[in-house]
């Protein structure tokens, strides 16, 4: 490979990291909040799709993509509320409920979304931070959407809030030990429901990014499992918001390898290159985990814990 080709692939990875990572980031941050409170919502894939559809529809009707983002957050919050309340019932399994809600979210989004496949809705704009450069690749890589920046900020705010605010501490206490939380007078169920609602709202915003910015239109194939992958990335990130950022960026960058290599003429084995993000994640996990630290940092009440 020539220097040019290597540069091109690296630039594409940078661009991919910025463009593709945002939905992963929002969903995994949302799920981190939910899981910190001791619940797993596996249904965020459905919430993401519902958010994408609602955002597109709202943007189309209102003419404002930011109202679309708001609509997506609301739709996500509704699904989060549903999960939060139902999972609070005794004996109702949160993982199973999540899978069922994934189906319901996808189904409703596809059903109501039929009308929005064809029209073109106003989409979100980007900050052109690369305007100084002559390279079209760099310019496009640095077309940064405000939501990406919001996601980054949110990760750091969450990191700080989990450690330093009363709400953050309550959330963690509820997630780590229900008995201790009750003893400390924390409202366990309301905290969990609220955490799931916020998680759903953030996942909805992740969906809005898909339909309103990148790729920037609504159709039924929009999410090829990004939502469920993002939920899985939370475990990879060990429930730490800052590591969610790393995981999302890495995932986006690795996903750009396949297309970028082909654009410079290396196209054999493209399926294998396309599997790079998954293989890389697995490899990193196998290398960094050990028998004793597997669920280090996991909230104690999480049903993944045994």
């Amino acid at each position: 490979m020539t220097i040019d080709a290597i540069t091109a692939v690296l630039l594409a990875m940078l661009g991919g990291a910025i463009r593709v990572s945002t939905p992963f980031l929002f969903v995994s941050l949302g799920e981190t909040i939910t899981e910190k409170a001791g619940r797993i919502n596996l249904g965020l894939e459905g919430t993401l799709v519902m958010g994408a559809m609602s955002a597109y529809a709202a943007s189309l009707y209102s003419g404002s993509p930011w109202l679309g983002v708001l609509a997506a957050a609301c739709a996500g919050a509704v699904f989060g509320l549903l999960h939060g309340l139902l999972a609070s019932l005794r004996r109702v399994n949160d993982i199973a409920l999540g899978i069922a809600l994934m189906l319901l979210g996808t189904g409703l989004a596809f059903y109501w979304g039929k009308a929005y496949i064809q029209p073109q809705a106003p989409t979100l704009r980007a900050f052109h931070l690369g305007a100084w450069s002559d390279s079209p690749a760099l310019r496009s890589a640095l077309d940064i959407n405000p939501l990406f920046i919001a996601g980054l900020l949110l990760a750091f705010v969450l990191h700080w809030a989990f450690a330093n605010t009363r709400v953050g501490l309550t959330l963690r206490l509820v997630g780590d030990s229900e008995a201790a939380a009750r003893a400390a007078g924390a409202a366990v169920i309301p905290t969990r429901v609220a955490a799931t609602v916020i998680g759903g709202a953030l996942a909805g915003v992740g969906g809005a990014f898909l339909s309103l910015f990148y790729p920037g239109s609504w159709n039924e194939g929009l999410s090829n499992g990004q939502g469920i992958m993002a939920v899985a990335l939370v475990i990879f990130a060990r429930w730490q918001p800052r590591r969610c950022v790393l995981a999302a960026l890495m995932f986006g960058a690795a996903g750009a390898i396949g297309p970028a290599l082909q654009s410079v003429g290396i196209s054999s084995g493209y399926y294998l290159f396309n599997a790079a993000p998954y293989a890389l994640t697995l490899l990193l996990m196998a290398l960094t985990c050990s028998r004793d630290t597997s669920l280090k940092g996991a909230p104690g009440e999480l049903s993944l814990n045994r």
Binding site: G225, I228, M229, A232, L233, I235, F236, G269, Y271, L272, N274, A275, Y278, A279, T281, L282, M285, A286, C289, S290, R291, D292, T293, S294, L295, L304
Partner: peptide, 22 residues
């Protein structure tokens, strides 16, 4: 290795599908 099975099985699934296609 202490790798969570939910995420590893999902990742392996994507890898397996890619290998099958390949």
């Amino acid at each position: 290795r202490g790798v969570n099975e939910t995420i590893s099985s999902l990742l392996l699934s994507y890898i397996a599908v890619a290998l099958m296609n390949h």
